[in-house]
Write a protein that binds this DNA or RNA. Structure first.
Lengths: 218, 218
DNA sequence: TTATATAGGAAACACCTGTTCTATGTCAAG
DNA sequence: CTTGACATAGAACAGGTGTTTCCTATATAA
């Protein structure tokens, strides 16, 4: 008896029990515990199904080791789906300063910022990095001193996206909504009460897209 | 040889190794693995120190069970210190609407919002709840449509705090910085380019304090 | 010195535990 | 019916593994 995920009922039962057991005890169950709990007649049946589950990538096993069963999902996927993920805090963004390049993302010594899934889903955190805002120069983007902006590196933008742009001949990086209008680009402040500015398309360099903002007022 | 936490060097080594091992393998180490890794001559020494550690509450053990070692901190405290906590999303806040009362916080069916520790530390999430913003009426508080505001319920405010206030005779709830000035209260928009408003102290009701903002621009 | 508590060491025991081998049952394709 | 893949049973084996007992070493207090 199979269903969509390609697992037999028994295999799903085993998987569920392991997950449950780890949740409750903090360590994986032994084969004989699985056997008894699920009323399986022999340990070899459990071993057989564990092997099948491992082949399907549903769990990992450490051979010959007691309780050497691991469910990657419980430790990583399930957790990250709940808690989101983390992105590197690469530096500070101020009025007259170009953005740091998001190169050494994997460097371990960089401070990490937790991003809840409500802001950016965990599976879309690729190429996303964080910058701390200093100063009030982004006030027209509804971003204030102390905020943390989440940027995804991308060299182009689609209409309506809030992007970090650098304007040639101007040394400042600003956050604006991007609208291509022929040979010009309209940069619209997020604050609707403020006026847009128009620049030659050739003179704007998109540095990344703003995907979220975190503000702490503790 | 003891230090501040009351653990011997060997005990601290054992504790660290267990934590490390669980992190890496997903299941706890066996006594003999601890013994070999730390160059301890006998398993009885490990057992001796594990017993001591358990007595000091640093770990839990399931008697007679292989790899039955659990470090409560790794599963709960460490995680929540890293990932923050969650608060209930109690509803929507719009221009002309009083705030929902934060009563049924513990109700399980309420949607939960993850809050990263950079916004609000996990140990300060008491009485904090989240509201989704609808409309552009809070633009002067640097809060836009779709944002999630994190509020801590408190009926009074100190100078400089951003609070949710309801003004008598006015049915709207707004988010402003609060400054008491004699018999009057100055409500200062977060956007420094905008002007404050002054109201009789008796006519403002503080509904809560804004402790954070989450904005998703996906 | 003599006690006493603490810490470390060696070995053996008994049970836990994953593995393996063989046998049985089911079911669909040939 | 036969075949073969798949799933299940039962049992035994070889290590893994926590526990226990006895012993040694060191330091401190009486």
């Amino acid at each position: 008896m199979r269903s969509a995920d390609g697992l037999s009922n028994r295999q799903r039962d085993i998987l569920n029990y392991i997950e449950e057991f780890v949740q409750e005890h903090g360590y994986p169950p032994a084969i004989r515990q699985i056997q008894e709990k699920l009323d399986i007649s022999s340990t070899s049946v459990v071993a057989y199904n564990l092997k099948a589950l491992e082949g399907k990538g549903m769990l990992k096993r450490e051979g010959k080791v007691s309780r050497g069963i691991t469910i990657p999902n419980v430790v990583s996927a399930t957790l990250s789906r709940i808690m989101g993920g983390s992105v590197p805090l690469l530096g500070v963004i101020t009025a007259g300063m170009p953005l740091p390049e998001p190169e050494d993302t994997s460097s371990t010594s960089v401070e990490q910022i937790e991003v809840p899934p409500d802001v950016v889903p965990a599976d879309r955190l690729n190429d996303v990095y964080a910058l701390r805002v200093r100063g009030h120069s982004m006030i027209d983007a509804l971003i204030d001193d102390g905020d943390i902006v989440l940027l995804r590196y991308q060299p182009t933008a689609e209409n309506g996206q809030m992007v970090a742009v650098r304007i040639e001949d101007d040394n400042a990086v600003t956050l604006k909504r991007f609208y291509r209008e022929g040979e010009k680009v309209r940069l619209q402040p997020a604050n609707v009460t403020m006026s847009p500015i128009f620049v030659d398309a050739a003179k704007v360099a998109v540095q990344g897209r703003v995907v979220g903002v975190l503000r702490s007022m503790m």
